[in-house]
């Protein structure tokens, strides 16, 4: 039983780490602010979620499990609020997204 729990936890941790690293690479790779926000969304929802669920399989008693659930709920409730406030502030202060398909990263970099 313990072996199964540990293996499932390790699998969840591995998926979470892969998603977090993908989000970090996307944060460096995407061309403008609004697309980078989607990359951060990956690490905030399923990346953090899978790591915390993986830790739940390792938790020794119920209180620690409950605290992990609490951190997960807090992350899921707070993440959208932060990204919405950030996007709204950026839009109101005149930072426009690059909308056309293709290689417009040069134009964005030169305008700053």
């Amino acid at each position: 039983m313990d072996v199964i729990l540990n293996f499932t936890g390790a699998l969840c941790l591995f998926i979470g780490c892969f998603l977090c690293i993908s989000g970090g690479v996307g944060l460096l790779r995407f061309p403008d602010f609004y697309t980078r926000m989607h990359a951060v969304g990956v690490t905030d929802t399923l990346g953090a979620g899978m790591i915390l669920i993986g830790l739940m399989f390792y938790s020794p008693d119920f209180l620690i499990f409950a605290k992990l659930v609490m951190i997960l709920l807090l992350t899921l409730l707070v993440g959208p609020t932060t990204s919405h406030v950030l996007a709204k502030a950026a839009m109101r202060n005149g930072l426009m997204p690059a909308l056309e398909k293709g290689d417009n990263s040069k134009e964005i970099n030169s305008s700053n």
Binding site: S22, R29, F30, H38, L46
Partner: peptide
């Protein structure tokens, strides 16, 4: 999540921000 991660690794040519 699967879609976004796929497009992270596919690169900037494959996205179409709207």
């Amino acid at each position: 999540n699967i879609t976004v991660v796929k497009h992270v690794w596919l690169g900037n040519k494959s996205i179409s921000p709207t």
